[in-house]
Write a protein that binds this DNA or RNA. Structure first.
Lengths: 170, 170
DNA sequence: CGGGATCCCCAATGATACTG
DNA sequence: CAGTATCATTGGGGATCCCG
């Protein structure tokens, strides 16, 4: 991804990079070595979070991209783009999310500094979630991806149909 | 890092990760309402499998983004960017992927018209995978995202530390 | 070598109940 | 309203064995 800046001749340490052990997980998980290499080695280019074999930034990037891979995260960011929103407001808007997941996802976004959580000590309680500037900056790249998806959707659906058709009897 | 290579059956980067409805499923599967929107049909903006809420034609976008959310898909696309590659070559490069997942992912990418699969009837058999032009076009948006991730990684990690720190005693 | 078929486990989510 | 705590479910994905 980024290393394109310094072109590489032949077989560059590819840059792929995603890996997400779990979406949000609390403290416990991060520290815990969920790892455990199995026997031998894992010649992975992205050896879990501490692999240390890629140009540094790529590794961490995976952690970040992981959040983007999460459908709820993206959705929430998009929804908050129009302004702050309350917990249940978000829940209603999204529609298919469970209270639990909404909470977890918001926590993750908050942890990453993408959204802020403001609690109003009123009765009943009120909590507002809003995008931080960092959160707003994420919109562009995400929308770029969204636009690509929309732009190529026809081609992809066509490819799918063709593929499914040709593999009919198999 | 907690690298307890011993104890615990431990799990590799079994990365569960995002939604991926099923990587390859066919259209018919969509109907499978695991989440039947019971009763008062939720006013969800994205009818179940749909992910984004971009205006209008975002219907199938979610399906497409699902593939991007898949860590293996992205990785493979990035790897193939440099040219065609054979099955085991990919497997080795990626390192942490199981044969099964590689096959499944490649099938999905092929189905979506992002990569081509060329079989050489030799002995032993040889199969080359290469990006289609569509696949190549995906690199840009993905890299955009990657660049964002890398660019904001410091800020995010900082936010994480701060967050984790403040929620210490909890 | 590439990859289909199986078995099985566990992280990710949903559903439900309870509290401030 | 906004969460937190639990329990139950599932399907993603690793490990294996086998075949062309």
């Amino acid at each position: 991804m980024a290393r394109d800046q310094h072109t590489q001749p032949s077989r560059p340490p590819q840059g792929g990079t995603l890996m997400l052990p779990g979406t949000i997980q609390r403290e416990s998980d991060y520290a815990t070595g969920t790892t455990a290499e199995h026997k031998g080695h894992v010649p992975s280019m992205f050896d879990r979070r501490n692999g240390l074999d890629l140009p540094g930034d790529c590794r961490g990037a995976g952690t970040v991209l992981a959040r983007i891979g999460d459908k709820w995260s993206v959705l929430i960011v998009m929804l908050l783009a129009d302004g702050p929103m309350r917990f249940n407001e978000l829940k209603r808007k999204i529609g298919g999310i469970s209270q639990r997941m909404l909470t977890l996802t918001l926590r993750g976004l908050e942890r990453d500094g993408l959204v802020t959580r403001t609690v109003y000590a009123t009765i009943p309680p009120r909590v507002d979630y809003a995008l931080t500037s960092l959160g707003h900056s994420l919109r562009t790249p995400v929308e770029t991806l969204g636009l690509w998806a929309i732009a190529h959707l026809p081609a992809i659906e066509q490819a799918r149909q063709a593929f499914d058709l040709s593999s009919k009897g198999r």
